[in-house]
Nucleic acid binder design. Structure first.
Lengths: 120, 120
DNA sequence: CAGGATCCCATCTGATACTG
DNA sequence: CAGTATCAGATGGGATCCTG
């Protein structure tokens, strides 16, 4: 922290405590973040549709999650200035790239959850 | 829930609120769970090694995370009854299967974290 | 319809201290 | 060495009410 002469981006290490990738990983693997990304990967959606698709999410957490993912550049928010308001959410190219790594994981969990829970 | 004649494992849906896959997904994507799985995928490790490898994890959370992952059947815990005690952790076949889906995600985050954080 | 603001509880998290 | 126990603060998450 005292001396830092251009660290040359050493392929960020998630195991390092101070590494920014930790924060990104937390966003990406957050409880609702995963489901939002996967849902939007299947199809762009409006706020209400997302809320219905992701059962159990509160308005607060959906809003918060979407804001975080938008700030990270994963989600694109498009608000139409109409009455009533209409807001469409979709994945950015970065978000689609992420989704490609997330979907196999979610799929795997979906296929193996039964035996895992049953093992308890 | 009223009629359920052998539900034939309908590929559990993570979007359903009551689905057990939700719980598994939360374990798998938990803050420290991801790092533990990935760390053990690289090599089995003892408690102390894990603690040093995963910077920033407290003893409490490491213990708790390991217990959860062991209960889920992802991690194998082998305690040798020696003095001083020695405990080795490794992935089960199920854990390795999971790791195969987790590592691409973590790798991706590691490679893209810089531009994502930079975007803020 | 799509949120923002607020309150409140559960869980996470980090020190510290202690044990076999 | 490999944990467990406990406490206190921070954060996550949900319910409710309110607004453009």
């Amino acid at each position: 922290m005292t001396e830092n002469p251009a660290p040359a981006i050493r392929a960020t290490n998630v195991f390092a405590a101070n590494c920014p990738s930790r924060r990104v990983l937390d966003h990406v693997t957050s409880k609702w973040g995963v489901l939002v990304i996967v849902a939007l990967a299947q199809s762009p959606m409006r706020w209400g549709a997302l809320r219905r698709r992701i059962e159990g999410v509160s308005e607060k957490m959906l809003a918060q999650t979407l804001r975080t993912l938008e700030a990270d550049g994963f989600v694109l928010r498009e608000a139409q200035p109409t009455i009533p308001p209409r807001v469409d959410y979709s994945l950015t190219p970065l978000g689609r790239s992420l989704a490609a790594r997330l979907i196999p994981l979610v799929t795997w969990v979906g296929n193996n959850a039964d035996e895992i829970v049953g093992a308890h």
